[in-house]
Design a protein around this nucleic acid. Structure first.
Lengths: 240, 240
DNA sequence: ACGCTATTGTGACGCCCATCACATGTTGTC
DNA sequence: GACAACATGTGATGGGCGTCACAATAGCGT
């Protein structure tokens, strides 16, 4: 099965490998069957916009493959990137539940596979199944939890260096490359976008990277970063 | 009925006036009855700490009366106030659901009346009642929504003046004093705490207030603020 | 009324970083 | 391979605001 963009649409939710470790996918067979029947599997190319902040919610988007950038934009062109969503996450969930407009804009940063569920179908699905409903509550808790941590580290730290260090440590801890001596990570965002994540300017990000390299804390091969001195980076990050 | 602090503990959830306009309280009679049986009505004096960030969740706190300050603290003493919770809000909800530690610290800023529900009781309650479970999802959506708006206006605006203006407008819109010509509002936080809400220093807040008064935009009588020029304040706030 | 402490007001100084302005890669496209 | 279009690197400059230091009030308990 090929999407308009030539991407292969992978398996159904029932055989999906994410089921085990991701909230919301490990429902009892009956519920999963129902879910299967109301979802629309879709593929998006890089740069596609799933929804825009302010739009009334059309439904939820379960991210199965790829990465989605969630951002908030001001009328005057300023942008804050709230988070990068990974496979397993449900996007537009809170807006769909509450009926309020999407609070963020969701844009794919690489080719993605997504399951879309229309709002009405989804709400009906939830009302029929306590278990599913509880999973949703868990997902939302998770989201809220992360939003708080985000706000915390963004608000608590003042210098840009601190925030960048925190971001890099955060990434390296997710990439599975966690507690290695010299964790590697692929930079999938431009300096501009990184700046938008930590609330600073592009130039500052460039300069910070330059300094970190000069101080032998970082090293870059193409778009791959190597953290050569995790301790030092942590010091910078914790200089609250 | 009097609490240890001499505060009168008000009516039950069944006769509570918040029921109509607040999520989570307008359940069907049966569910409400159950809820009534598992909750502990408690009164707290000003300055009491309901829970501390990092603690494992003991349960939820439904705020019935008073105001609670939710904050995140760094080991080095820095503090960010995430939000002020008003009656009707459920505190510690996401932690209780997910089983992860409380992500914020909750401290009363005036005498409060609170209904506490133990985690186990609460989870059992949810599993028994889709409706209640869905309400919880709605609450969480709400929380998430607000957290995003928060993060947005904190991250998008760069000058402290902007953030203070936004905060004041936000407050005046909540206090019911909404769209008056000259909205009034009681300042219940110190400059220090306001600074912690908008991520700036105490002195800056003082100076900003001074300037707003000099420019005839604000006027203060004791702890009461009057916004004399809403338009001008809005201009400052939207200078993204 | 009297101190004590918490809060607010204000000046001086200096650093961080946003902004502007270019130079120099790097990518993708035809 | 040539040319956009974009991403990155770097200097110069200036303002916002954090920080320190201290003065002036305002509450508050006894």
């Amino acid at each position: 099965m090929l999407s308009p963009y030539g991407m292969e649409i992978v398996e159904s939710c029932i055989t999906c490998k994410l089921r085990v470790d991701r909230i919301f996918c490990d429902l009892p067979p009956a519920a999963l069957q129902t879910f299967e029947s109301i979802k629309y599997a879709t593929a998006y190319p890089q740069g596609a916009v799933l929804f825009v902040e302010g739009q009334m919610p059309r439904g939820i988007f379960v991210l199965c493959k790829g990465t989605v950038k969630l951002s908030i934009n001001s009328p005057s062109g300023r942008t804050v990137i709230v988070k990068l969503a990974e496979p397993g996450e449900v996007l537009g969930l809170s807006a769909t539940i509450s009926g309020k407009p999407y609070e963020v804009t969701a844009e794919t940063i690489d080719p993605c596979q997504v399951n879309f569920v229309k709002r009405d179908d989804f709400l009906r699905f939830l009302k029929d199944d306590v278990e599913a409903c509880f999973k949703v509550a868990e997902q939302l808790s998770e989201k809220y939890h992360n939003a708080c941590r985000e706000a915390g580290s963004l608000g608590l730290s003042h210098s840009a260096a601190e925030k960048l260090a925190k971001l890099l440590l955060d990434w390296s801890s997710k990439n599975g490359e966690a507690a290695k001596a010299e964790p590697r990570l692929k930079l999938r965002l431009t300096h501009e976008e990184i700046a938008q994540m930590i609330g600073t300017s592009r130039e500052t990000v460039t300069r910070l990277f330059a300094e970190l390299k000069k101080r032998q804390i970082l090293q870059s091969k193409g778009s791959t970063l190597v953290i050569r001195n995790t301790a030092a980076l942590r010091d910078i990050a914790n200089h609250n």
